[in-house]
């Protein structure tokens, strides 16, 4: 699904002493098939932005919009979110959203029921037991869990990493075309992190054509994303592929953001008169350095 945003602004608690401008004239386009990264500090507006993508936050009513912001555009695939009448249920079926620490949304008695929750909610009419079972089995298998072994287990008895997988299965059970994730690997140990990223790639190449991921981990971003948007103070500062973005290491550091290890090294080497032009993945960086090796 293609996401098009033009001149999107959002203010929390408008007309109160707590009013905060969370988004300020944001314009950006995510093409279908991308693995799109969003980076920025807590409070930079990135979470507010992604909550617009499945209609959890709405534009101010159409009338006010026309008067105030005239040209605001927000479309996700075939859905026009500036239109009050957009079918949110149909939209949410196609846009899966995984929030931070998604295991906190588990509630059912068994893993099966929890994963089936979204499937039943979105089904047209009442789905048959076989249909539900097939969908749940698919989802759990995709996230790397053994369906037969976990379906009757209480989700609260699982380990942290497994809970997170179940939660993700509960989102992808409708086979969304667009998957939005807010820091999917936060709080996991290094191995758990690695496994989640591998899972996202599996999903990207199977069900969810487009993936949007919010992350603080710049190495993760550099290794995985096709393009990256940098949010700061409610605005979009850059939208670039990692290869271009991390050439601006000094500007990113000035914004108080981190950069991947490879970018830090590229900068440190540049100061020593060595220019390395890599795409900032570890693999490519090492290769480019080794290619320049002379015997010593």
């Amino acid at each position: 699904m293609r996401i098009v945003t033009e001149h999107l602004s959002y203010i929390y608690n408008e007309r109160s002493p707590f009013a905060t401008r969370a988004l300020d004239d944001v314009s950006l386009t995510v093409e279908e098939g991308e693995f799109f990264g969003i980076i920025g500090h807590t409070g930079s507006g990135k979470s507010t932005f992604v909550q617009h993508l499945n209609g959890l936050l709405r534009l101010p009513s159409a009338l006010k919009r026309r008067a105030k912001r005239g040209d605001t555009v927000l479309t996700v695939g075939e859905f026009d979110l500036a239109d009050r009448k957009t079918d949110l249920r149909a939209l949410r079926r196609k846009v899966g959203m995984v929030f931070q620490y998604p295991e906190n949304q588990l509630f059912a008695e068994t893993v099966f029921d929890d994963v089936a929750f979204g499937y039943k909610n979105f089904a047209d009419g009442k789905p048959s037991q076989e249909e539900t079972e097939a969908a749940v089995r698919d989802a759990l298998t995709t996230v790397g869990l053994d369906y037969e072994a976990v379906k009757e287990v209480s989700p609260f008895e699982l380990s942290g990493g497994q809970k997170r997988r179940v939660a993700i299965a509960g989102v992808i059970v409708t086979k969304p075309e667009l998957l939005v994730l807010d820091e999917p690997a936060a709080g996991l140990d290094p191995l758990g992190k690695q496994e989640i990223m591998e899972l996202l790639h599996t999903l990207h190449s199977s069900w969810c054509k487009t993936v949007v991921i919010v992350s603080h981990d710049m190495d993760e971003i550099a290794e995985n994303c096709t393009r990256v948007a940098v949010f700061a103070e409610g605005r979009v500062k850059y939208v670039l592929p990692p290869r271009e973005l991390f050439k601006r290491t000094e500007e990113l550091l000035a914004l108080g953001l981190d950069v991947p290890l490879t970018a830090k090294l590229t900068l440190a080497l540049k100061k020593r008169g060595v220019e390395i032009d890599s795409d900032f993945t570890l693999e490519d960086f090492a290769e480019k350095v080794l290619a320049r090796r002379r015997t010593c």
Binding site: Q51, L56, R89, V95, M97, P102, N104, Q105, G118, G170
Partner: peptide
């Protein structure tokens, strides 16, 4: 927290 959980369940079609 309530808001977060509500959002998460709404996103799952609740």
């Amino acid at each position: 927290e309530t808001e977060r959980i509500m959002n998460a369940q709404k996103a799952r079609g609740a």
